[in-house]
Amino acid sequence: MGGGEKPELMINGKRLDGRMPDQLRSIKIESGVIKNAVGSAYIEWGNNKIIAAVYGPKEALPKHVQDPERAIIKCRYTMAPFSSLEEHGRSGPNRRSTEISKVTKEVFENVIMLEKFPGSEIDIFVEVLQGDGGTRAAGITAAAVAVAASGIPMTDIPYAVSFGKVGDTVILDLNKIEDNYSDADMPVAISPRTGDILLLQMDGTLSKDDVKAGMDMVYRAAEVITKVQRDALKAPYEKISERYTK
């Protein structure tokens, strides 16, 4: 957790940005922002601004990476060097982003019907243009829209969000300052149709009851996040239909 002097994160039951403990930041998604990709999405989740794009399925190369039974997924999560308010970062992957790429890939290995495209490869890119805590969750939520928009069959559209703990309070959807100073952080990705957990990471200190309370919030958040995802996917088609329904 972060160094320096720890700020007061909860005042009179409210968080620094005025949210209640179980309240999400505002989430907006736009589908179809990268023309060359088969599917893409731009998400603004609080102050996070992230683009996800999908290419493929295409012939998996080099040949030795091919799986004759199913498609393979390659995933690349990166943060732009200008994404933080502080110093200019390095571009390209590092240890942190490589791990996030891996766990993101595993989420999509669960929901994409890979057996439909044996021997092929699906590429998923997640680029954080601006980060403010919870970028892996927001990236997965956006990438799920990008994959669905491409027409690649999937058993569900997953979403992700994190929860954590400040003092005695379990809070949903940590922003950067909360992430830096909270007592715990637990990002989770869920298949809303089944409730199955597709990604789970955690560090800090949580009791079993905290996990239960946090997971409750995560499941309740599906109502909002899934709706934003579905609306984003339908919007481009509905916009065209509306031209002719009046």
Binding site: I34, K35, N36, N47, K49, A80, F82, S83, L129
Partner: peptide
């Protein structure tokens, strides 16, 4: 478009899309 950067611009020339930050 990226408020964390001191300056930023998203520019399109037809279907070419770039960010300068």
């Amino acid at each position: 478009i990226v408020p964390n950067a001191e300056g930023s611009a998203m520019v399109t020339f037809g279907d070419t899309k770039v960010i300068g930050a």
